[in-house]
Amino acid sequence: MSAPASVMRPVPAFVNDERSMTESILRDVADGKANAVRDCIRRFSGSVWSLARRFCPTQQDAEDAVQDIFLDLWKSASRYDPSAGSEIAFVMTIARRRLIDRTRRVSRAPSIQSLPEPEIVADHPTRDAVEFDEEVAKVREAMDRLRPEQREVLTMSLVQGHTHQQVAERTGMPLGTVKSHARRGLMRIRDMLGVSDPQQGDRS
């Protein structure tokens, strides 16, 4: 992905930025290494921020949420297990959980497009982390095989932050159908990741 001419890097260049994409940042974060912590913020904050903007009704809420998410990440970094998935998946799992909890706590449905669009978008370093991630490649392949309705429901729910009721209203699908599409789609994605389900056994 090439950067536009007006690109502005979202964070300043770092003194020590020699870590490769394949090294474990989170392990070093758990050890409290300052450069790793800074790398972690640089690499993952863009994806977390993008997600938070979709879940939160105001810029201030989104910023507070991102602070909460990274505090959770510092606390949880020692639990990261490379054999259980990629670092970006670990980070985004924490981010989504925190955002869902936060949304439910204030009894407010996620509001989309309520924040002003950024004037400048960047070819953010975190996109590199996404592009080169093996899990992302597997799921991208799985996505291509989903039925259009499954993909639509998942996009509206995961990316746009809609509740199942909102998806039903916007698509005209019955609520049960919305849930069914989302569940079946996610099952295919999970299968593609090779994660066994202890409730059902290995579906593959």
Partner: peptide, 17 residues
Amino acid sequence: RAVAVATLVLEDEPAAI
């Protein structure tokens, strides 16, 4: 985990600053 990775894949816009 599946949801987290799927979100990244479906997110087709460049990350906001």
